[in-house]
């Protein structure tokens, strides 16, 4: 037989050390099981995307990483979520502190009804991350710059965050998330309420942020997953069907269900 070479070799260099190690995660809403025994090692300093049809459990699984499911009554999460060697899915870990390490950006931009400045300064303030006004100014400027928003808002930091355009609001939420210097940023369909230009800006931003953060993004746009992520996980009916290098998943998926989903054969 002749040699055959798969393209996985070209993407092997992407693999980085595991940041979040999820082990045997099961999630129940009351009697109904939403996630079935999922284990997944999410690499640091890269973007991992979760794809799958509505109701497949991808958002539920994402919310296990910063214990957002705790806020849902009768939701129960079993299994270990190990971040940097520590299981955070136990009562011993304060979810508020955890969420300063694991930031989150939601589908609909949700700035606080405060000024642009205060939206970004809120997290550092409650976590005591800035001692002086100058420190805080620096954190705000730095966060807004990294979120690609500084140039657009630097002359109106006192105006309400809700007065910005949708795309700007979403970048403000990203600035707010990174202001507390998290290690991990979770994004739950961050672009689904944005126009293509604002989407492109967010995607560009995600690509820059992955140098510093571990980013996990849930998206309904296959093209977006293919564009922004290095690793892709496909969920179906609460199970993890396939998890691999994005290039491989989109050009040559190993599971027929992944194949059918990404080529638009069921949904």
């Amino acid at each position: 037989m002749p040699d055959t070479s798969s393209h996985s070799a070209t993407t092997a260099s992407i693999a980085t050390a595991t940041k979040v190690d999820c082990r045997n995660i099961n999630v129940f809403y009351g009697d109904k099981q939403a996630i079935f025994d999922i284990s997944m090692a999410i690499p640091g300093r890269s973007v991992t995307s979760f794809i799958g049809p509505s109701g497949c459990g991808k958002s539920t699984f994402l919310r296990c990483i910063n214990r957002m499911n705790d806020t849902i009554e009768n939701a129960r999460v079993e299994g270990q979520v190990i971040i940097e060697g520590e299981n955070v899915n136990t009562d011993a870990v304060d979810p508020v502190l955890l969420r300063s390490r694991v930031g989150m950006v939601f589908q609909k931009p949700n700035p606080f009804p405060k000024s642009i400045y205060d939206n970004v300064a809120y997290g550092p303030r409650i976590h005591g991350l800035a001692r002086t006004r100058e420190d805080m100014d620096a954190v705000v400027q730095n966060s807004l710059t990294r979120a690609g928003l500084w140039e657009e808002v630097k002359d109106r930091l006192g105006e309400p965050g809700t007065g910005l355009s949708g795309g700007q609001q979403q970048r403000l939420c990203i600035a707010r998330a990174i202001a507390v210097s998290p290690e991990i940023i979770l994004m739950d369909e961050p672009c689904s309420a944005l126009d293509p230009i604002a989407t492109a800006k967010i995607e560009e931003l995600i690509d820059e942020l992955r140098e510093r953060f571990c980013i996990v993004i849930v998206t309904h746009s296959m093209q977006q997953a293919a564009r922004v992520s290095q690793r892709t996980a496909f969920f179906h009916l609460g199970k993890l069907v396939e998890f691999g290098d994005t290039e491989q998943v989109f050009t040559n998926p190993t599971d027929d269900r992944t194949q059918d989903y990404i080529t638009g054969r069921f949904g």
Binding site: M222, Q223, A226, F250, T251, N252, P253, T258, Q259, I262, T263, G264
Partner: peptide, 8 residues
């Protein structure tokens, strides 16, 4: 925007 086997 074909994917996977369709793209191939």
């Amino acid at each position: 925007q074909p994917m996977a086997s369709d793209l191939r």
